[in-house]
Every structure is written in structure tokens, then in C-alpha cells.
Amino acid sequence: MISYDRVQELKIIAARVRESIIEMLVSAGSGHTAGPLGFTDVLVALYFQTMKHNPKNPSWEHRDRFLLSHGHICPALYATMAHAGYFSKAELLTLRSFGSRLQGHPHREYLPGIETSSGPLGCGISQGVGMALGLQLQKNPARVFVGISDGELQEGNTWEALMLAAHYKLTNFVIILDRNHIQIDGFTENIVGLDPVADKMRAFNYEVAEVDGHNFEELEKVLHQKNTSGRPLFVIAHTTPGKGVKAFENKFEWHGKPPVDKEAYDALASLRSLEGALVAPHHH
């Protein structure tokens, strides 16, 4: 069980990561807003609670691996990694600029700690399967976590990979679905419907867990447990796109654009007031 105090700490970290995301997007002048804010809590749970990793030694052999299949939400990954100590927070403002290690979509060779380059959708699970198979062959106890978007469930490659991971009964392998119901052209269920996702995954021989993707107690519970099911774990994390900034929440218009001027100022103000409110009961 995760303590109340630890949950409060994680919430504060997540608020700071979200502030960084807004600052990065304003600085870059382009990029995605809703997705990064929506997946921030999952990333904070992974990098600050669940995963065994060492920011000072990103290639540590026994590290747990996290692959971001939906690379377009990388501002959240970069911000989480910077807050975790992989690199300086000042570097975050170089996002998407020429010569930056923080490419518009992640590039493995540019930034240590990025497990794979991503952006083109649908092949993150495949690469995670390859890593998980490799780790098993090496008798390395590390786990592989792959974050995927719901939109990329429409990619054929996704289902090829889902079948293979289940066939090989990979229990060192966890897929976390960022179920925010939006994609560029609208709501997923209006574009090409995905539901019932949980039933589909059970039919594909997955151990399925559904959690509130903003609830650290629930995330801790499913991500931390040892998988004894004999099936790979598929976590449906219900997330709110734009989470943390009321004006952005649940609006697919914020999928692919950054906030400007007053939008950004208001967003930062609301996140900072949230952070203050979270700190208050703990430290006073």
C-alpha cells in the first residue's frame, strides 16, 4: 500500500511536471497539449514509484524499461524525466528547437534514457515484446512497460504485437493504455470505435486491469504487483485529456496545438494554485 503522504508527494510532483509541460509548449510554439497533461500521472507513477531505474545511469542493465509508443505526447515524458533527474529542467525549454536533444518526437540516440524512437504509431508494443523476450533470454528480471494511445489501437501492427506477447505469455511485460477517448479528428468512438477494449484484451489472452489514470493508489496497486497470471498485463488507464487545466480538459481541439498567451498564463496559474493547495495540509 502506498501511504497518504506519498500520494500527496506524487500529486505535487505531477503538478510541477504539468507546469513544465505548459512552459515547454509555450516555448516551442507547437506540439500537443491534451495528451501530455492526461498521461502525466501515469508517467509520474512509473518514474517516481514503480520502476527500478537510475537517472544517473540510463543504460543500467537491470533497469525497468518504459517505451512511449505514442511519441507525440513526449513533452510529458521529457518533463517527467527531467524532474526525475535525467537532465536539467532548463533543457526542457529547448523542446522542438534546432539542435535540441528533445526532438519533436523522441529519438533514442539524441537523449539517454529514451528507450526507443517513436512517433509513427503502432509499433511500440512490438519493440517492447522484443525487449521482454530478450530480457527473458538473458534471465534479466527487469520489466518492460509500454504506454500506448487509444487511437493507435486502430493500427494493424498493434494487433500483431498484442497477439505475439500473449502467445509468448510475457509476464515481464505491461501495456498501459492511455484511454482518453480523443484522437486528432475527434472522439475515438466516433472515428473508428474501440470499445469494448477490456473484452477485446481478455479475448486476446491478457490479464486486464482498469484504473483511474489519475489515481496514484490505483496505479500503484496494478503496476507494482507481481504478475502471476501467466498472461501479459494490459492496464486500461482512464485518463482525462488536458487533465489539471480545467479549460483544456476533455476537448479534442487541444490534441495537437499548444496554448498561447493568456491560455498559458491561466493554465500555469491554476496549476500553481493546485500545487499550493496540495502542499498546504502537509507542511503546515
Partner: peptide
């Protein structure tokens, strides 16, 4: 046999799984 992986009729998956194996130190 331990170093062989049958992936089925799924060439896109095969390429990307191989990339993951390479990331773990193998030559696929």
C-alpha cells in the same frame, strides 16, 4: 530453438520486435 522466434504472418511486427531484441543486446 531457444534463439528462434516464430512471429506468424506479421512482417511489420517482426521488424519492430527485432528492433526491441537488438535494444536488449542481440543481433536479430
Amino acid at each position: 530453438p531457444d534463439r528462434f522466434f516464430e512471429v506468424g504472418v506479421a512482417e511489420q511486427n517482426m521488424a519492430a520486435v527485432a528492433s526491441g531484441l537488438a535494444a536488449s543486446g542481440f543481433i536479430p
